[in-house]
Nucleic acid binder design. Structure first.
Lengths: 143, 143
DNA sequence: TCAATTCCCTAGTAAACTGGTAGAGATTTA
DNA sequence: TAAATCTCTACCAGTTTACTAGGGAATTGA
């Protein structure tokens, strides 16, 4: 029912890259440090995100990871799905379920509700919201 | 991210009782048989549902379990929560998260979306939907 | 070309969780 | 009192989770 720690790490890592919005690669070690993620664990996650087509990488001295698509074309849902598997409430309908069971319909409604949030939220949205939060903080501060 | 098998069993068991809508108790064995749930496992689940205040029970020859509240006052979400724990996307916010992290807000939005489905669906609703499905089936049949 | 730096890949692993099973005990009723 | 039924505790095998370990491969600067 909940997102795994691994899933959260993945989101935070992509978010970290989206915030920099830099063309040059960011090192695993930097992301791990900033986001407080165990580095070796993060390596696995980033590699998976690369294989899934979200990230690109470069080796060697000034190497690291970077987004291959702009942040407004990566949704939270998409990242979550490749790390944690299908975002669904029930697994495939239990065997031998009676044909007028009301549950399958319930699950699809719940899944649609969930998707309407996570599949419509891009990392650009998240970055923007953070900016707004910061702006508000500063305003309150100045007053 | 998904409902456990145990959670599904719990829902099906409550649904079974809601369908009968009988004042007399229903035996574990009957529910297990109708819903194809391993009986010993179901025992644990029903006992938990009793301790959580959804069901009552009676021992002895004509014993069994029954709903203590009418089906329109039991929501899917409530049952799910006592069996599977809090229906939330993220566990408690990860330590040391920066104050303008956009994720907590995202999770509350997702949780609200989910709740709007499962906390508004009662077992009376489910029973009714099943009736409608059946009615439609019969109509198609007759034509 | 060498060595430092960085990503890449495979494996292992302790602890928790899941989906059960086993068996004896407590209550109720006939 | 016996049969039926719920109740309670304990156990367990298999899977998943959240890591850690260690070496290999590419890139680059000197």
């Amino acid at each position: 029912m909940d997102v795994s720690v691994k899933g959260e790490y993945a989101l935070r890592a992509v978010f970290d890259l989206a915030c920099r919005n830099a063309p040059e690669p960011t090192k695993i070690a930097k992301i791990a440090e900033r986001q407080k993620i165990p580095q070796k664990f993060l390596e696995l996650i980033l590699s998976q995100l690369k294989q899934s087509g979200f990230l690109g990488s470069k080796r060697g001295v000034e190497g690291g990871y970077f987004l291959v698509r702009p942040a407004d074309q990566i949704t939270v849902g998409a990242v979550l799905r490749v790390i944690d598997g299908p975002v669904q409430l029930s697994r495939k309908p239990i065997e031998n379920e009676s044909p007028d069971s009301p549950f399958p319909e319930l699950w699809t409604r719940a899944e649609r509700a969930l998707s309407s949030v996570i599949d419509r939220t891009t990392f650009a949205d998240l970055v923007e919201r953070r900016q707004q939060k910061r702006a508000r903080r500063v305003v309150n501060w100045e007053i």
